[in-house]
């Protein structure tokens, strides 16, 4: 009894700094955000204390950036998945000794700033880049790539590829090769084996990858500005405008708060889904 009690007390002491950290950097900002979101906009912008839900009612005026963001995040995540899965499959199953080199080649570019990498795509997609090459080759004339939705998707896929690739790679790499051998032994050809064994066992990795890409893309700010030319307005851009340009803090806070709430539903849904799947969860302890 006494020893359990003592252990309980000492573990509470050990957890102290973590709890403090959590309160200070997780809970407190959320409280501030909520307080601001029910306040009113000051005459010159900013925030005045108050209590009104009007800001939440006003959210529907921001429906376009919200839908834009959700749409691009879904499309971007899907395209990233389609690009990353075969790559991860190749790395995990076929690359052999080249595996580490190839993984490094994929990851190393991401040590440079995202801003610089995205600027590089401005040049590539701009009139002197890929469209110029294509028209010289006589394949396409007057092709416009920069400042289109296509450019935004390219930007998303390029910038978030490792976040999708690595969890899928890990879950594929962990699949015991004898499971695939057993499947073939029992009469399944390569495609049937992939469909019934490899794909379901890599599902946790796919889910983690999708979540790891979807969440930051929802908060994306740079890509729509640089590659979309500001035509496709994202939530991140809307928030920046509300806080920095029109200085409507309460509305901005309401928008950001709703956004956080929405994302927590996504995360809860994710953890429900992964719990139903067998096999290792590469993001266990991360999310």
């Amino acid at each position: 009894m006494t020893s359990t009690a003592r252990r309980g007390r000492s573990s509470a002491v050990a957890a102290g700094p973590a709890v403090l950290w959590f309160l200070l950097f997780m809970i407190a900002p959320l409280v501030v955000l909520f307080v601001v979101s029910v306040g009113v906009r000051g005459p010159g912008g900013g925030y005045l204390p108050g209590f009104t839900l009007a800001n939440y009612g006003e959210l529907e005026t921001r429906l376009v950036p919200i839908l834009n963001t959700v749409r691009f995040s879904l499309i971007g995540t899907a395209v990233t998945l389609v690009v990353a899965y075969p790559l991860a499959y190749y790395l995990a199953m076929k690359a052999g000794r080249m595996r580490m080199v190839l993984l490094a080649l994929i990851i190393v570019p991401f040590w440079t700033s995202m801003l610089i990498r995205t600027y590089a795509w401005i040049f590539l997609l701009g009139n002197n880049g890929i469209p110029e090459v294509l028209s010289t080759l006589g394949l396409a004339d007057d092709l416009r790539l920069l400042n289109t939705p296509f450019a935004i998707v390219i930007g998303i896929v390029y910038n978030y590829l490792p976040l999708m690739l690595l969890p899928i790679y890990v879950s594929l790499e962990r699949i015991d090769p004898s499971l695939r051998a057993a499947s073939k032994d029992l009469g399944a050809d390569r495609l049937a084996t992939f469909r019934q064994v490899t794909l379901p066992l890599s599902a946790p990795g796919v889910l983690s990858g999708c979540l790891l890409v979807f969440i930051p893309v929802m908060g994306e700010y740079l890509i729509p500005v640089l590659l979309g030319g500001g035509r496709s307005y994202f939530l991140g851009n809307a928030l920046a405008d509300l806080f920095l340009q029109s200085r409507n803090w309460p509305l901005g806070a309401a928008l950001a708060g709703s956004f956080i709430l929405l994302m927590s539903f996504v995360v809860v849904g994710y953890s429900r889904l992964t719990r139903r799947l067998a096999g290792p969860l590469p993001t266990e302890g991360v999310l």
Binding site: D176, S178, A181, A182, S183, A192, Q196, P200, A278, G279
Partner: peptide, 27 residues
């Protein structure tokens, strides 16, 4: 392998972890 009328019991069984016993056996 998938056409051969021979089946294998693997050293570490290689049971499919995402299927229950009946699904494994019926594979």
């Amino acid at each position: 392998a998938f056409r051969r009328p021979l089946n294998t019991v693997f050293q570490h069984y290689a049971l499919f972890p995402h299927m229950d016993v009946a699904k494994n056996v019926g594979y």
